[in-house]
Design a protein around this nucleic acid. Structure first.
Length: 523
DNA sequence: TTAGGGTTAG
């Protein structure tokens, strides 16, 4: 490796910084053997004129309009933990940092990238990382770990692994955090087997001593893929290796068990962890309440709400929304509304999901008037209904054959700044076909495509059903054939729609014919 | 200055 003196490096860095300020980026000193394919350039998207957005947050050096160094350190430390309010704020700060002389340290730049990572602006972090390199700033192992984390969250764990070579080039050694991040990246891409291989290799070779986070990561990966038995096995073995399992590891397994509908096993694990002085937290209880509700065991879920409060773990809006949803699905909208009142008394503010859920609950009971009342009351409480709330109510009207009211709501949405989704169109199309308004449905379908919405699986089901129900079986069959030709192989539901219609229309031969082809199609 | 668990409304 070529030796470069410190003085030469400093002078090179200053030159780069000066050029950067002039808008010149000359050198590409990036050692990576991979190419980034991200089109987003944050430097073009915000603050092109270097306008200062930070007047109220950091005082500036009056001569240079640059932040005070001590305040910058404090500010960045806080933002790296909490994230920035807005992306533009972070980018503006970055622009100001690169104008400082001398430049802030790599630690401050890493903190800025961490803050952006917390806000999930992963591709922005990668772009800024490249800018930092172009400025000649030598990144450190922490910065590389942040980069790997962002690549993993963008489902590019392969690029994450290729960053490992940069560690060695820069004289760093990947640490346990590096491997934890990569293992998590593998799990995010459903490669838990690979993560497990890496875990076993690291343990076998003894180069890296797994820590609590590594055990937590692998236990989570196993639990997510239905391997809760292996995950529990690791949990038990950890004690032999003098590691005390923590609440995170237990929560991961409890969630896995709940998703596998093994809620009783999850409840046993709750007892076991408590016996071992591992205190369950809000996530433990929310996971269990969700698991119980999914199985319709809402009474036990309600008891758990009391238990957690007794243990000074206080429910949040998610806890209540989960319970309200379960009660609504049981047809107990009135009781769900009592839960809403209870949460308000407890100082937990209902959100748009709470009201949306309750709206749906009343619709399920056929009480459209109450559903509308809940929908409208949301606005009185200062909560703006979102697209999902509109979809629920439009669906309610359509199912009750009140197409005019549904259409009024549909037309109201753009006035509220909401754009209909493919679900909204599918619901409206179903409603229109339901009342026999085929031509309006066709018009809406055209409008939908003109607005850039592509028909999805449900659209085709609605069209097949709507056309055949309205005596337009030939057009339905034509669509069916088109789907077959275009490679969207009609599934069993689509076949059933047609078979059902043939039967109802007395066309039994056609029904039998289509039915007879099912097994040959693997259905 | 870096890494792990729950995310609820058809």
């Amino acid at each position: 490796m070529q030796e470069i003196s410190t003085a030469a490096l400093i002078s090179k860095r200053r030159l780069l910084a000066r050029n950067y300020r002039k808008g010149i980026t000359l050198l590409p000193p990036v050692n990576f053997n991979f190419n980034f394919n991200f089109n987003f350039n944050p430097l073009l998207s915000a603050d092109n004129n270097n306008t200062l957005l930070f007047h109220t947050q950091i005082s500036t050096n009056p001569n240079r309009n640059l932040p005070d160094r001590r305040q910058l350190r404090k500010f960045l430390l806080e933002k790296s933990k909490l994230g920035f309010g807005k992306l533009d704020d972070a980018l503006s700060l970055f622009h100001r940092m690169v104008q400082m002389q001398p430049l802030p340290s790599v630690i401050q730049f890493t903190e800025l990238l961490t803050g952006l990572t917390r806000m999930k602006h992963y591709s922005t972090v990668i772009c800024l990382f490249k800018e930092i390199r172009l400025l000649g700033i030598t990144v450190n192992d922490y910065t590389l770990n942040v980069l790997i984390n962002c690549l993993c969250h963008l489902n590019r764990v392969d690029y994450g692994f290729s960053v490992l070579s940069s560690f060695f080039k820069l004289g760093y050694v990947p640490c346990v955090t590096t491997f934890n991040t990569l293992m998590h990246g593998l799990i995010l891409q459903d490669k838990t087997g690979k993560a497990m291989e890496l875990f076993n290799k690291l343990v076998r070779e003894g180069e890296i001593k797994p820590d609590g986070v590594m055990y937590g990561t692998i236990i989570n990966g196993l639990s997510k893929t239905g391997n809760t038995t292996t995950a529990i096995g690791i949990l038990r073995s950890m004690r032999k290796w003098n590691y005390k399992p923590n609440v995170v590891m237990h929560n991961a397994i409890i969630d896995g068990l709940c998703k596998d509908k093994k809620v009783d096993d999850a409840l046993s694990l709750l007892v076991e962890m408590t016996q071992q002085d591992i205190t369950p937290d809000l996530i433990t209880y929310n996971t269990l309440i969700h698991g119980l509700c999914n199985l319709g065991r809402w009474e036990e879920a309600t008891r758990m709400l009391r238990d957690m409060t007794d243990k000074n773990v206080f429910p949040d809006v998610l806890t209540f929304n989960t319970l309200i949803n379960a009660l609504c699905k049981e047809g107990m909208a009135k009781e769900a509304e009592s839960v809403l009142e209870f949460m308000v008394q407890r100082g937990v503010g209902p959100d748009v999901v709470t009201y949306g859920t309750l709206t749906y609950g009343y619709f399920l009971r056929g009480q459209m008037d109450k559903a509308i009342e809940v929908f409208r009351s949301m606005v009185d409480k200062g909560i703006e209904p979102n697209i999902h709330c509109y979809n629920i109510l439009i669906n309610g009207y359509c199912k009750n054959m009140k197409i005019e009211e549904a259409m009024n709501l549909f037309l109201e949405m753009p006035c509220k700044g909401l754009k209909p989704t493919i679900d909204t169109y599918n619901t409206m199309l179903q409603g229109l076909f339901g009342v026999g308004s085929c031509s309006t449905a066709e018009g809406l379908l055209n409008e939908m495509q003109a607005n850039g919405q592509t028909p999805n699986y449900y659209t085709y089901c609605v069209l097949l059903d709507g056309l055949s129900k309205n005596g337009r079986i030939d057009e339905a069959l034509l669509l069916f054939q088109e789907l077959e030709c275009s490679g969207i192989n009609p599934d069993i539901t689509m076949h059933s729609i047609l078979i059902d219609r043939f039967c109802k229309d007395g066309k039994l031969e056609m029904a039998k014919n289509l039915f007879g082809k099912l097994s040959a199609k693997g259905l």
